[in-house]
C-alpha cells in the first residue's frame, strides 16, 4: 500500500534533552491512525514535527513523498494546503469572529465573495452540528465543546486529504466526547481523508482507529491493527488500556 506520510528515524531534542527518539511510522492513504500515550510522552511534539512547525533534530519526514524541509516554500504551501489540523488547545484566533476563524484558510488562499464564504462556513458548521447563529460570536463566548467543534469545522472547510486531531475529546464530558468522536468519523469518511488522531481517551481509540501506535518516553513501543491490541504482551500498553477499563467497570 502507498504511504501518504512516512516518518523515518525522527528524533527531536530540546536543550540536549531527548524528547522523541528514532520514531519510524508509515501512514497509509485512507487509514485512521490513533496515537496514544501518557501525558508528556511527545505526541503533540511528533505532530508538530510532521507539520513542519518544529524542525526535527534528526531524521526525515515525507508527506506525499516530499521532504517538507527540503522543498521550496510554494511546495510547502501545497503540502500544507492538503492538511487540516485541530490543536490540543483548539488554537482558535481569539481576535476573530467564528466565521472568520472557519473561513481563514479559504480567504488566505483564494479569492471568494463574502456570500460564497458564508455559504461554505454554514455548511462546515452544519457538518459539526453547530447552528449558524454563532457565526458572528467570538471564540471566548463559546463553551469548550463548541470551541472543539469550531476547530474541527475550521480544519475540514477545504476538504483536506489529511486530518490531524490533537486530543479532540480532552476536557469534555463523555456524552459530548462521544459526539465529537462520531463527528470525526463521519467527516473523515465523507471526505475520504487519512486521519491521525492523538488521544488518551480509550473510547476515541475504540471508535476511530483502525491502526494504533503507542508512544512512551519518545519511542514507539507498539504499533499495529486495532484488533491486535488485546493480544499485545507489552506491559506499558496493557497497563494503559486496562486502567481505563477498570474505571469503566466500576462506574
Amino acid at each position: 500500500m502507498k504511504s501518504i506520510i512516512e516518518i523515518l528515524n525522527l528524533s527531536k531534542n530540546f536543550d540536549n534533552k531527548n524528547i522523541l527518539n528514532k520514531i519510524n511510522l508509515k501512514i497509509t492513504k485512507g487509514e485512521s491512525l490513533v496515537i496514544i500515550g501518557k501525558s508528556g510522552s511527545g505526541k503533540s511534539l511528533l505532530m508538530k514535527c510532521v507539520l513542519g512547525i518544529l524542525k526535527p533534530s534528526q531524521g526525515e519526514i515525507l508527506i506525499k513523498n516530499k521532504n517538507f524541509f527540503s522543498v521550496k516554500r510554494d511546495e510547502q504551501d501545497l503540502i500544507l494546503k492538503s492538511i487540516g489540523v485541530t490543536f490540543q488547545g483548539n488554537a482558535l484566533f481569539d481576535s476573530m469572529r467564528i466565521w472568520e476563524n472557519i473561513s481563514f484558510k479559504l480567504s488566505q488562499n483564494n479569492f471568494f465573495k463574502f456570500s460564497q464564504l458564508k455559504e461554505k462556513v454554514e455548511f462546515s458548521l452544519n457538518q459539526v452540528g453547530l447552528s449558524n447563529s454563532i457565526m458572528y460570536q467570538f471564540p471566548s463566548q463559546l463553551s469548550g465543546g463548541m470551541q472543539k467543534r469550531v476547530a474541527i469545522a475550521r480544519a475540514i472547510i477545504d476538504e483536506p486529504e489529511i486530518l490531524f486531531f490533537d486530543e479532540p475529546t480532552s476536557g469534555l464530558d463523555p456524552v459530548t466526547g462521544n459526539k465529537i468522536n462520531s463527528l470525526i468519523i463521519d467527516n473523515v469518511k465523507r471526505l475520504g481523508s487519512t486521519s491521525i488522531t492523538i488521544t488518551h481517551d480509550l473510547s476515541s481509540l475504540n471508535k476511530i482507529a483502525n491502526k494504533v501506535a503507542m508512544i512512551n518516553e519518545g519511542k514507539i513501543i507498539w504499533y499495529g491493527e486495532k484488533q491486535d491490541l488485546k493480544k499485545s504482551k507489552n506491559k506499558t500498553l496493557n497497563e494503559f488500556i486496562n486502567i481505563d477499563s477498570d474505571v469503566r467497570i466500576k462506574t
Binding site: 508538530k48 507539520l51 512547525i53 504551501d77 500544507l80 494546503k81 492538511i83 489540523v85 490543536f87 490540543q88 488547545g89 488554537a91 482558535l92 484566533f93 481569539d94 481576535s95 481563514f104 484558510k105 488566505q108 488562499n109
Partner: peptide
C-alpha cells in the same frame, strides 16, 4: 501580550499550518 498569548495557545502554529 497579544502575540505572546497567540504563541502559547498555539494560534501562531495554526496560522502557519494554514499557509500564512
Amino acid at each position: 501580550a497579544e502575540i505572546g498569548t497567540m504563541k502559547v495557545s498555539e494560534q501562531i502554529d495554526a496560522l502557519y499550518v494554514m499557509s500564512t
